[in-house]
Every structure is written in C-alpha cells, then in structure tokens.
Design a binder for these strands. Structure first.
Lengths: 132, 132
DNA sequence: TCCTTAATAGCAATGTTTACTAATTAGAAG
DNA sequence: CTTCTAATTAGTAAACATTGCTATTAAGGA
C-alpha cells in the first residue's frame, strides 16, 4: 500500500523552508516556491507545511497575534514579537527543556512541547515612539 | 481639552468582560453587550477592548491558533492548546515573573511580558487516538 | 502499461480583525 | 442652557490567515 507520495511541490516547500532559515511564514514560503513553480496553490503550501511539521521534518512555531512560522530543524529557541510593528525576532536565551515538569496538575494532558513568545518594542519602534 | 470620553458602549464592554470572567473572546463580549444594546457594532467592541487593555483596566491574552482573549484582573497564567482539536485550556503552573531577566542579549529590545503556550494532547483526543 | 487514489490547482468560504466614512454625541466653553 | 467640535459611534467593506471543496492530475504499485 502507499501512504505518502513524494511530489515536487512537497520537496519545493521543504527546500524553501530550509533556504529561508528560521521563522518563515506560510506566505513567505509560498512566494519563494512560486518563483520556481508558479502554478502552486496556497492550499498546497499549507497542507505540505503541516504534513512536514507532523512528520518532524520541519517545526511549526505558533506566534500569537501573527501568522504561524515554520523553521528548519534549527535548535529550539524562543522569540520576541514587537507589539508595534509585528516583526518577529529570535531571543538569545537558553531553552528550558524541562519546563513541562513545572506543571502541577496535568488534568490528563499529554504535553509535547511549548512556545514562548516575549512581547516587546523593537529598537526601531522605540526610536520612533520617543522622537514623536 | 478632552482626550477620552465615557460612553455607554465602553462601560458596557468593560462590564461584560467583568461578568464573563476570564478568557472571553471579542465575539463573546459582543454577544453579551448586544443583549442590552443591540445596535452596538463589532468595531466598537474591538476598539474599546483594545483601549481598555492599553489603559490597564483589562488584560489582553493572545492565543496562537484562536481568537484573542480578554480577562478582567485575574492572575497571569499560561495555556495549553491541544494540537489535535485546537481547544485552549489553562495550565496549573506558577507564573514566572522574571523570565525576561534570563534573556542574555536584548539587542535593544524593550521587553514588556511574555506568552507561554504549551503544546499537547487533551484527554479526549488521547482517548480517540489510542482507541483507533 | 494500467489502475487506484493521494495529492494537486483553483477558488470559495471561514473566522478574526482592521479600515473607512458619514452620522452622532460627550463634554468643554461661552 | 446653548453652541461648538472633535472623539466616538454604527455600519459596512476589506484585509488577513487559514481551511474546505471539487474536478483534475499524477505517483507509484501491480
């Protein structure tokens, strides 16, 4: 029986995520793939991103207040989102691998990981808001 | 000079957030206010929720993958989102108030808080995936 | 080569939120 | 109390990210 097919679309999506390094949005992936394969549809990009994330080939990072991000298998790390301009950056901070252990009552949940996103003002927006 | 007006709409929105306790979505607030004041528009609810959040009278909680939540003054806390069904629940865990201090290089950022969302499988979805 | 069905392109539809504009109205000033 | 004016509103449209639908295409086993 066959369960999964290797399509050009899927390999192009994976390739694009790798090229774009970390925290690419689905739309950025779509834009990049569309340069080589203009007929690809957004639905296909979304479907493959989720499949690749589920199979562990890429990582999905959910950022509150903005679009989901997709990373290659770079090390686990955290993010900041500027509350003004919405841009997302990496944060230079150790990953807390055992954060799930601090949960007191799991209520039957099975924890598999966590997303930590800081809120803040990026340097550019700080400048703007102080000069105005 | 006047900078801010006290409108019935704003006080109704604040009242609704208080009544609904924690995790009310903008739409839930709208539904509640509309019962007393049917002509209110969603735009007004959104604008007032953001204004109230900015002035500190309520708190805005951004949850990836679902609508923003608005809380009265309940304590800071974290969330889990089931990776299968998408539902969001509270996590029983101490709030780490000084998490921002663990950041090594701020790169000029001004940090104001953080959102921590765990990933996991809720009890219902665990049952389903084990029985299939 | 044929056959099955997973995967696709294209588009419609969803849900959440923001943007726009003419009409309304809270609150200051006279 | 009346007038003035700009903050706020209702209503609607549009932006945005994402999912759903369906006829068509094509991967890969037989």
């Amino acid at each position: 029986m066959m369960i999964k097919r290797n399509t050009i679309q899927r390999s192009l999506v994976l390739e694009a995520v790798n090229k774009l390094k970390c925290h690419a949005t689905a739309d950025e992936v779509y834009q990049m793939v569309a340069q080589e394969h203009p007929t690809i549809s957004k639905g296909t990009v979304y479907r493959n991103l989720h499949q690749l994330a589920e199979s562990g080939e890429i990582r999905k990072i959910e950022v509150p207040g903005s679009a989901d991000r997709f990373d290659h298998r770079c090390h686990d790390h955290y993010h900041v989102r500027c509350t003004k301009c919405g841009k997302v950056f990496d944060v230079n901070m150790d990953y807390i691998a055992d954060l799930e252990k601090k949960i007191r009552d799991t209520h039957g949940f099975e924890f598999t990981g966590h997303d930590l996103v800081f809120r803040g003002l990026c340097p550019d927006c700080r400048k703007e808001s102080s000069s105005i």
